[in-house]
């Protein structure tokens, strides 16, 4: 439909802008380095190379964007994405406040399953709980790996 008319690729412009910002950040960070190496090349050389590359690529992406041709992409459904990210957010929050590994992954499991269209939240929570507990027991107890502990994990 629209792909026949040559139009500016907006995504390309965003990418170009992001690359330019990234190049700027790398250069700014480079200027904060105070110690250079006594012999040979110092720690500032690589940031300069990387930032130059990013800047050139920013221009390259911009040129491509104005040449157009970015085909219309179908709209994604945002809700499932947000569900999964919400699940990950819950994991981060729970582990951050010391809620432990098992409850965190239980929520993540159920949220992901729901994102993929399942509507049996209780069953999914149960499966996630069993999976998380099994994984916890196997790795924390058998291999003495230190996974985050909450009230529940302390029971084992």
């Amino acid at each position: 439909m629209q792909s026949q008319t040559r139009r500016v690729d907006r995504v390309g412009i965003v990418v170009a802008a992001l690359l330019a910002v990234l190049a700027g950040v790398v250069i700014w960070d480079m200027t904060t380095l105070t110690i250079s190496q006594t012999y040979g090349v110092g720690p500032k050389a690589m940031p300069i190379v990387v930032a130059s590359g990013l800047a050139l690529l920013s221009i390259g992406n911009l040129v491509l964007a104005f040449r157009g041709g970015g085909e219309e992409r179908e709209q994604p459904t945002m809700l499932p994405i947000l569900l999964i990210l919400g699940g990950l957010g819950a994991v981060i929050a729970l582990i951050g406040i010391g809620g432990g590994f098992i409850p965190a992954v239980t929520i993540l499991f159920a949220a992901t399953a729901a994102a993929f269209g399942r509507r049996a939240i209780l069953i999914d929570l149960a499966i996630g709980f069993v999976l998380g507990t099994a994984a916890y027991l196997m790795f924390a107890k058998l291999l003495s790996l230190s996974l985050p502990m909450g009230p529940l994990e302390r029971l084992f």
Partner: peptide, 11 residues
């Protein structure tokens, strides 16, 4: 699929 991806994310 829901369980497969949920499991992947857990691991």
């Amino acid at each position: 699929q829901p369980w497969l991806y949920a499991g992947i994310l857990v691991f």
